[in-house]
């Protein structure tokens, strides 16, 4: 086990209760998708894991020392005044990584997302999909063992989204990462995940924890297989049962 949510609740100062009595675990190497309706606390759960906000009750427990984190936001959240290279280098600069190591890591991260040729470009010169790749490269540059992704592909067109899904799945397998992936999309979660946590409407809590066996064997053909349809129906049924649909 890598981390556990132990009866976690989160109530904001304005009175909104995002999470109530939420309990789940994440194991090392998992690709866990969190699926649920808008406002059910999916993003709040990620922010709690990243220690960007504190729980109102309960605790987030790590099996050892908290791992190095990478965070990919819904918007690419790039610094428009910095080049692609400068954006990817940011976590390394903030954590005091020496110049030579930082240079090598930036080059490696850009190669992983296929953007070596755009190192000197500025964000405004890139497409939406490319910006998201830069955001992913920035998260990977810090060599995280846990990658938190908050609806990273929600704003992209379907074709770009599918391509980035494939790239992310390959990266996860290659880099031995643990990924926690927040999404609205049942189809995306079924394609990517080794487990899917289904959340109830607000105040959110986990209403189903569905295993998705053999995550490493997937390829684009899986999207049109009967198994894929069957699994999508299972997630949809869980959402319906919890009142989210």
């Amino acid at each position: 086990m890598l981390l556990s949510f132990d009866h976690v609740a989160k109530r904001f100062p304005n009175g909104v209760e995002a999470l109530r009595d939420t309990t789940f675990t994440v194991n090392e190497g998992d690709f866990v998708s969190i699926v649920g309706p808008s406002g059910c606390g999916k993003s709040t759960a990620l922010r709690l894991i990243a220690d960007l906000t504190k729980p109102s009750a309960g605790a987030i427990k790590w099996s050892g020392k908290p791992p190095t984190l990478g965070f990919v936001f819904q918007d690419a959240a790039l610094m428009p005044w910095a080049t692609v290279e400068g954006n990817v280098r940011l976590p390394l600069d903030l954590t005091g990584t020496d110049t030579a190591t930082a240079g090598a890591r930036v080059a490696e991260a850009l190669a992983l997302v296929g953007l070596e040729a755009f190192a000197k470009s500025y964000p405004r010169e890139l497409s939406g999909g490319m910006k998201m790749r830069v955001s992913l490269a920035r998260a990977l540059a810090a060599k995280p063992s846990l990658l938190l992704m908050d609806e990273p592909f929600a704003a992209l067109d379907e074709l770009t989204r599918e391509r980035l899904n494939d790239e992310l799945r390959e990266l996860w397998a290659k880099k031995n990462l643990t990924v926690i992936f927040v999404t609205h999309s049942i189809y995306e979660s079924v394609y990517l995940s080794s487990r899917i946590l289904v959340m109830s409407p607000r105040p959110g809590h986990v209403i189903a924890d569905i295993a998705m066996p053999d995550p490493t064997t997937r390829d684009p053909d899986f999207r049109i297989s009967p198994l894929y349809g069957e699994r999508c129906r299972a997630v949809r049924a869980a959402l319906q049962k919890g009142g989210a649909l």
């Binding site: 960007l52 965070f71 936001f73 918007d75 610094m79 005044w81 940011l90 976590p91 903030l94």
Partner: peptide, 24 residues
């Protein structure tokens, strides 16, 4: 979200000022 990224990597006040707030 950039502020949160700076939080995530435990940026100092000076790093935040020089690398985020001032360019913005």
């Amino acid at each position: 979200q950039l502020h949160e990224l700076f939080d995530l990597y435990r940026a100092t006040r000076l790093q935040r000022l020089m690398r985020l707030q001032f360019p913005a």
